[in-house]
Design a protein around this nucleic acid. Structure first.
Length: 633
DNA sequence: AGCACGCCGACT
DNA sequence: GTCGGCGTGCTC
């Protein structure tokens, strides 16, 4: 008997080993196998009836029984295939640590009695759960009854509604975007029954135990992050993915797929009713809901603060606070309420101080990246470069400038104007560790908090009197097709944290931007309608799919040549739009952006075959990122 | 990914 | 004369 084993390494093919006589291993089971001298943990993906004395033998089993069922293994294969990455690397990122700690020689005894390995052929397969049809929320037409129920919860009280769904299900697995939120939800669910955690907020042994308990069905509630996406689901469980729009659901590294896409695919394959929650769903998910693939349930809209958009066009930029914002701050402080001023650390685009026009790429419509040092504007997508223009393309005015108010300048301005109040700044992305803790403590007690996106976690719903956006234009102008979506999401999240009788002030040079109008009207649909129009017109997700390929050769010349080769290979496919490669890291690396269709992965794989195959021209391809979310260099 | 093998600089 | 830099090649 021969076992095919994959490892946590960028090798796309499995390795074959002889299974010693009397030992039983099954697909989905982890084993210790010799690989280049050392014994390494690998995952069995196939067992074949054949003999080959040339092959080396497996050392022993690591799990007494398969940790992944056939269905789970198939899902892992799908993730790997769709993301052009290895099954081994994907599984390594999605499995609990083997045995809770490194295997020791003493545990080798497991290998001598592996009969149990085949007795429990892991988790239970389920049919469509009939019990889920009883719920109260309307179910849109468009999906047949055999398909699982998929809900998108937006609007006020969405977490409460998610909790109700969990309470009425027999079992539930909740996926959060980060460990902090996993801890919070574990606490919430504890009122319903015993909860196990699968995230790194608990130790490795507890995670491994949680996995086994779920497989046995001895616990009904679990919370985890994306590392738990392959966890065995108890019978009649539902899945809940929280804050679907969060970029943390697809950080760099394996598994190279958005947690939401894995959850939806799993729901489909295993007929598991699934709930996504989000204040501002990703455009991709909103679109799927529009098409009836998910049932969008927007509860009654909660109270909404008064939103004022302060037009900053033509205003001399010496002062970050416009009169409307300064007045709102004064009034809010007079009421003894707290103020949050949102600032951004980004300032990378060129805009006109007169008319607010942003200098964009003629081809891609993205704001062109501004580099003062190089004296050029570059398109992050197509790589087009142009010298800094003298005149505004909109009004022919001469006042083009990179726009941005940094956190320090805003803090200074606030202190000067309001000398007797407690002002704190909070930028958790910049200040980590002890300094971050100190900042956080100061910010928790301050009257006015000046901070970036991450500072929102300081405030609960309706806890603020005022949220002010000093210059969200910086966010709207980020050279990324998702810039509007991100800016809208941030502003909406801030508005949700303001009392219904409070205020939101947005300073902008583009006061009629649809994101601002939708925010002011508390109208999610209005934003997505415009955003989808923009995405459709220019061929961005969800209408087209993107991939980013990074290439690196020995030097600038070699890198260039390799990138040209890759581009040429990709251009042979009529299903792909290939943009010219962009130099990065002082010409040491090149990035190639490819646009495709729904079949992107299937088209990309054969096109890149020569470059990804072992022992060929593989060296040089640094990474292939399909459906990137964060794709800055 | 690791880990070994392989040719060019400063050291007991 | 060696020890060691990490470039490149392979792992059942």
């Amino acid at each position: 008997m021969i076992a095919d084993v994959v490892f946590d390494a960028p090798m796309l093919h499995p390795f074959s080993y002889r299974i010693p006589d009397g030992v039983h291993v099954a697909p989905g089971q982890r084993v210790l196998a010799p690989l280049r001298g050392a014994a390494r943990v690998g995952l069995v993906v196939g067992v074949r009836e054949r003999t080959d004395e040339q092959l080396r033998s497996l050392v022993r089993t690591v799990d007494a029984e398969p940790i992944l069922s056939a269905a789970q293994l198939e899902l892992a294969r799908w993730i790997a295939t769709e993301s052009l990455s290895s099954v081994g690397g994907t599984c390594a990122a999605l499995l609990p640590p083997p045995g809770g700690r490194a295997p020791t020689a003493g545990r080798a005894a497991t290998a001598e009695r592996p009969a149990s390995a085949l007795e429990h052929v892991a988790p239970v397969e389920r049919g469509a759960s009939a019990d889920c049809a009883v719920r109260s929320t309307p179910w849109r037409p468009g999906s047949s009854a055999s398909e699982p129920r998929l809900d998108l919860l937006v609007g006020a009280g969405r977490e409460r509604r998610a909790l109700d769904r969990i309470a009425s299900a027999e079992a539930a697995v909740v996926f959060t975007a980060d460990v902090e939120s996993a801890g919070r939800w574990a606490g919430r669910l504890a009122k319903l029954g015993r909860v196990v955690r699968l995230d790194s907020g608990v130790d490795e042994e507890a995670r491994a135990r949680a996995w086994t308990e779920l497989a046995r069905g001895s616990v009904a509630l679990a919370v985890g992050t994306r590392s738990a996406l392959l966890v065995p689901l108890p019978a009649h469980a539902c899945m809940v993915l929280l804050d679907e729009h969060e970029a943390a659901h697809k950080p760099p590294g394996p598994p190279r797929m958005h947690a939401r896409d894995v959850v939806l695919e799993r729901a489909r394959r295993e007929h598991v009713p699934t709930v996504l929650t989000s204040a501002t769903p990703s455009v991709e998910v909103w679109w799927r809901a529009d098409r009836g693939e998910l049932a969008a349930d927007s509860a009654p809209l909660g109270a909404w603060p008064a939103v004022t958009v302060a037009d900053t066009r033509g205003i001399v930029r010496r002062e970050p606070l416009t009169p409307p914002l300064a007045r709102a701050i004064r009034e809010t402080l007079a009421l003894g309420r707290r103020v949050f001023l949102a600032v951004s650390r980004l300032s990378s685009a060129l805009a006109c101080d007169e008319c607010g026009e942003v200098v964009r790429c003629g081809e891609c419509a993205l704001a062109l990246g501004y580099s003062r040092a190089a004296g050029v504007l570059t398109c992050r997508l197509c790589g087009d470069r142009m010298p800094l223009p003298d005149l505004c393309p909109g009004c022919r005015g001469r006042r083009l400038s990179p726009f941005g108010w940094g956190i320090e300048r805003v803090e200074h301005a606030v202190r000067r104007r309001f000398p007797n109040i407690r002002v704190a700044r909070y930028d958790p992305d910049a200040a980590r560790g002890a300094r971050g803790e100190a900042q956080r403590a100061a910010a928790s007690a301050a009257d006015v908090v000046i901070g970036t996106r991450g500072a929102l976690r300081l405030f609960g719903p309706a806890s603020l009197g005022l949220a002010g956006f000093v210059s969200p234009d910086q966010l709207l102008r980020v050279p990324d097709f998702r810039s509007s979506e991100r800016a809208f999401s941030l502003m909406w999240a801030a508005a949700e944290r303001v009392r219904g009788d409070g205020a939101v002030v947005v300073q902008s040079q583009t006061p009629s931007h649809y994101a601002l109008e939708a925010l002011a009207r508390q109208d999610l649909g209005a934003f997505y309608k415009q955003e989808l129009k923009f995405r459709a017109e220019l061929g961005y997700p969800p209408f087209r799919r993107l991939a980013v390929i990074a290439v690196r050769g020995a030097g600038a010349t070699e890198t260039r040549a390799l990138a040209d080769d890759v581009c040429a290979a990709l251009r042979r496919s009529s299903r792909l739009t290939v943009y010219p490669s962009i130099a990065e890291r002082h010409d040491r690396q090149r990035r190639i952006v490819v646009k495709g269709h729904a079949d992107l992965a299937a088209v990309l794989r054969p096109a890149l075959e020569d470059f990804l195959a072992p022992r060929s021209r593989s060296r040089g391809i640094m990474s292939v990122e399909v459906d990137p979310v964060e794709w800055q260099p």
